[in-house]
Design a protein around this nucleic acid. Structure first.
Length: 491
DNA sequence: TTAGGGTTAG
């Protein structure tokens, strides 16, 4: 019976599972713990919460596994209140929770989207003395790290009596997800010094961190480690390697690894298509898209974001509109806000400002900052001063504390020679005490990544200034006309 | 019953 139920789980065959349930009743097997627990698990894995609840409520006796399975099921189905309620019932019935109970309960805070619940659950876990268990501790690290509360995550991480690859990965991935890629790479190095062998899951996080900090050389070292462990043929590791090379600027390496991948998932095709768009090889976007279709893969929402973006950058309005329409008619994918934003950008970049505005107003989403800012950016290109002012006013209504729109509007006025208006906008920005964060450039030399922003004084300042001036002269020689007021750059 | 992982522009 148990083997047959596990086969149902494997095949997601709910109908066969229901027949086995009837058979279990007829043969009076439902009183056996392992039978009713496997049945419960089968219903949850076959995505039938209703059947699982009926079975659970009808049982005369429930052991710890029964409670844990049901709590875990409620969390997995996105019913955190029911999971917590069941946990309370379990305590009232004097059932002592174990590690598995807390692992299931910890998922609740991720489902509810609230750190407060997570902290309360952490308190309960501490009271039961299971905080320092390896799996519970790792889950706590993961929970805090996912919430971006890296300090609490570190605190638990360092106080655990032991840490394994899962604990390290939870901490390293958390740093990576919250913009601390350098720390992820440092953790990876430290972990190896402590004699822990990285695995495929950790490699994926560390490769993403290399992509984020543009650490091509570091990425190459990781790639070598992956080859040493023979993990390069793993589908998800391969995708992460391709992505790392693309984001770190090495298109040829990415192309080679991609070509060598034995099985290519839709995700890695999407990564490659987006990479072509990022690298400006727009003709290859369409080539890769056609190749993907030839492999009998159907595009998804992410594919179309890359396609529409590529059409926007090549100014290919007609092809972009065709893809936008074919999303629904040919592939049954309904455009999300992201797709509408790509279309607003596409229309605006092509100079069809009224069509872009119409789309912004008629789309089934409330116009957001992204759309208005995109339009405002293109008004700058096309010198649409009054149109720009309308976009600017809409942006102020949505968020008056966002500094970028002031800079754009001021620039539009300056380009039109309306200096008084330009200064007026600058005054508005100053009165609101808003300052745009300067852009940051990352350059890798050896295994170190250097960050540059306006106003920095690097040790090679004079040498770099001479180089910049020479580049500026070359740009002027090819008739490049910079926007608005040219400001002196200093590094 | 039982901890960690992938893509998308503006």
């Amino acid at each position: 019976m148990v083997a047959a139920l596990n086969a149902c789980i494997e095949a997601s065959d709910l109908l066969f599972g229901l027949i086995l349930h009837i058979e279990a009743i007829a043969r009076r097997l439902l009183y056996v713990d392992i039978v009713h627990n496997t049945l419960l698990n089968m219903y949850l894995k076959c995505r039938s919460l209703r059947h699982a609840i009926n079975l659970f409520d009808g049982l005369l006796e429930r052991d710890l596994v029964t409670w844990n399975t049901m709590i875990s099921g409620y969390s997995a189905f996105g019913f955190p209140e029911s999971a917590l309620h069941l946990f309370g019932r379990m305590l009232l019935e004097n059932m002592q929770p174990d590690q598995a109970t807390f692992l299931a309960i910890l998922k609740v805070s991720l489902v509810t989207g609230s750190m407060t619940e997570g902290k309360l659950i952490h308190g309960v876990i501490t009271e039961f003395g299971t905080e320092t268990f390896l799996n519970v501790g790792s889950s706590l690290v993961d929970m805090y790290a996912e919430w971006g509360n890296l300090e609490d995550a570190y605190n638990i991480f360092f106080h655990l009596p032991e840490r394994n690859i899962v604990t390290w990965t939870a901490m390293a991935a958390g740093c990576n997800q919250h913009g601390r890629g350098e720390e992820t790479i440092q953790m990876f190095q430290q972990m190896q010094q402590e004699g822990i062998q990285p695995d495929r899951i950790l490699f994926i996080s560390v490769l993403q961190a290399c992509s984020a900090v543009l650490g091509l050389n570091q990425g190459k070292v990781i790639h070598t480690n992956i080859l040493d462990q023979g993990l390069e043929l793993d589908n998800m590791v391969g995708s992460a390697i391709v992505e790392m090379y693309l984001k770190c600027g090495s298109f040829q390496f990415a192309q080679r690894i991609f070509a060598e991948m034995p099985r290519k998932s839709l995700v890695v095709w999407n990564i490659m298509i987006a990479g072509c768009a990022q690298h400006g090889v727009h003709s290859m976007v369409m080539d890769f898209f056609d190749d993907m279709l030839a492999e009998n893969l159907s595009p998804d929402a992410a594919t179309f974001v890359s396609l529409l973006s590529a059409c926007s950058h090549t100014g290919n309005l007609e092809v972009g509109c065709w893809h936008f329409e074919s999303m629904v008619t040919k592939y049954g994918i309904f455009p999300t806000l992201d797709h509408y934003m790509c279309m607003v950008d596409l229309l605006g970049r092509a100079g069809s400002m009224n069509d872009a505005l119409d789309l912004l107003h008629t789309m089934p989403f409330t116009p957001c900052q992204v759309g208005w800012r995109s339009l405002l950016t293109h008004c700058r290109t096309w010198g649409e001063v009054s149109f720009a002012r309308s976009c600017f006013d809409n942006l102020l209504l949505l968020d008056p504390d966002e500094p970028t729109c002031y800079a754009l509007m001021s620039e539009v006025y300056a380009n039109a020679g309306m200096w008084d208006k330009s200064l007026e906008i600058e005054e508005m920005r100053k009165a609101a005490a808003l300052w745009k964060l300067p852009g940051e450039a990352l350059i890798e030399v050896g295994e170190k990544v250097y960050s540059f922003t306006v106003g920095d004084k690097h040790e090679s300042y004079y040498e770099l200034s001479r180089k910049l001036k020479a580049l500026g002269d070359r740009l002027r020689n090819i008739d490049h006309v910079p926007f608005a007021v040219e400001r002196e750059c200093s590094i």
